[in-house]
């Protein structure tokens, strides 16, 4: 009887220790709400919201420091998502933050002098190249944030709107002409 009791106590102590250790070792970092907000942000990392990236903006919203209508790349759709997530009213974009059509950066390879300034600016490492060599944008990874455009000393980066092709074409919202009835 006594041995059984001791075994149980020892087991409880051991398991308690394991649990205690696990809660320290595997503690969930960060704020779950901020992470949920970050998940609906477009991850363009452009800083147009006034924060140095999507995650800091998400943190600011989570803390209640920032409005939900500051991210132009997310579009109105993005504001709707944030409003839904946070249970607040939809808020239209301000005058100075209007969404633009999606684009990718393009480097004029004749003009590029290989200064690496754009590489340092790109938040998602979407520019390939080394010092004094021509640089190229990896279009599939470019988020269209435009951060690489101002640093270029020879002005060789332009933003090209994404063209509609068969592979990204979408069916339009049905629009019908109403016929006159006589």
């Amino acid at each position: 009887m006594i041995t059984a009791l001791w075994i149980m106590i020892a087991l409880a102590a051991l398991l308690g220790m394991i649990l205690g250790y696990a809660s320290i070792r595997f503690r969930v970092e960060g704020n779950p709400l901020a992470e949920k907000i970050d998940a609906v942000l477009p991850q363009t990392q452009c800083g147009q919201c006034g924060y140095p990236g999507c995650k800091p903006y998400a943190d600011a919203i989570a803390k209640g420091e920032a409005d939900i209508n500051l991210c132009p790349p997310g579009g109105e759709e993005g504001i709707h998502k944030l409003a839904e997530l946070l249970g607040v009213e939809f808020k239209p974009f301000g005058e100075d933050a209007q969404p633009k059509p999606k684009a990718v950066a393009f480097i004029d390879e004749q003009t590029c002098i290989g200064c690496t300034l754009c590489i340092q600016a790109c938040p998602v490492d979407a520019i390939a190249g080394a010092a004094k060599q021509m640089h190229t944008i990896i279009a599939a990874e470019c988020t269209g944030c435009e951060l690489c455009v101002p640093p270029c000393p020879v002005d060789c980066i332009s933003m090209l709107p994404i063209e509609e092709k068969l592979t990204n074409w979408k069916w339009r919202y049905p629009v019908y002409e109403l016929r006159q009835t006589s």
Binding site: C46, Q48, E146, V149, P150, P151, P153
Partner: peptide
């Protein structure tokens, strides 16, 4: 400068150009 430009890029009609020159 880049940060400032990026922050108000939404207000510009055209993408911010290489305004600070070299």
């Amino acid at each position: 400068k880049i940060h400032d430009l990026a922050a108000d890029a939404g207000a510009d009609d055209e993408p911010p150009k290489n305004s600070q020159g070299n």
